Simulated assay, not measured.
Amino acid sequence: MLVLLAFIIIFHITSAALLFVATIDNAWWVGEEFFVDVWRVCVNNTNCTELDDTMQEFSTVQAVQATMILSTILCCIAFLIFVLQLFRLKQGERFVLTSIIQLMSCLCVMVAASIYTDRRKDIHDGNPQLYASTLDGSYGYSFILAWVAFAFTFISGLMYLILRKRK
């Protein structure tokens, strides 16, 4: 049982780390000489421009930013609640609250990555002078980490739902 508990804790911490990296790092859309994330656009690694309300599609960017931040916060809260429930729950009870919060984190990261997938071109068209050079690129590792974090948080949420406190 101790090995299973250690695996679940490591899995949850890995999910949180993936969410942090995907939210913070500048590699959602990459090309030869630019990096784009949900916070800024960097051309030639020196000319960085913050994504702000001067863009036409700023509400889309804000939705991605908000849901990624919310997902990360919910994942951390789920871990804290898991630790509390680990010592407070009676034997045989399930970690339902932890599971619900972790599945909400999963939903948030899925919404963020889905919005970015669907509206990426619109986000880049918001400021044609800046984004003309960023149209030829591909999804970066932060975007891929967001989808991997989605899978990890989903599996983690299901594990908590199934897990019963045993000795």
Rank of each mutant, 00 (worst) to 15 (best):
D125R: 08
W29A: 14
I123C: 01
T72W: 04
E33V: 15
M55R: 01
L103D: 04
A78Q: 03
T60R: 00
I123F: 05
M68P: 10
S71V: 11
A66V: 00
I100A: 09
N47Q: 15
T46P: 00
G92T: 07
G92A: 05
S105N: 08
V43N: 09
L84V: 13
L103P: 02
T54H: 07
I100C: 08
F87D: 07
A113N: 01
V109M: 05
N127D: 09
E57D: 12
E50K: 11
F35W: 12
T49E: 10
M55L: 12
V61T: 06
E33M: 14
T117C: 02
I69Y: 09
V111P: 07
I69N: 07
V64I: 05
Q62I: 04
K90D: 13
A113I: 07
A66L: 05
C48E: 11
V30I: 14
C42Y: 10
V36T: 14
F95S: 04
L84H: 08
F34E: 14
R120A: 02
L97E: 02
I123T: 04
Q85S: 08
F82K: 09
F34G: 14
L74Y: 07
A66Q: 08
T67S: 13
I81N: 11
V109T: 04
A78G: 09
K90A: 15
L107G: 04
C42S: 12
E33T: 15
L86F: 11
L89D: 01
A78C: 07
E32R: 11
C75N: 11
N45V: 02
V96I: 12
M68G: 12
G31M: 11
S71C: 05
Q56L: 10
S99N: 03
V41M: 04
W28R: 15
D125Y: 08
V96S: 11
E93V: 00
G92K: 01
T72P: 12
V38A: 07
V43F: 03
C106A: 08
S105W: 06
I123Y: 05
C48M: 09
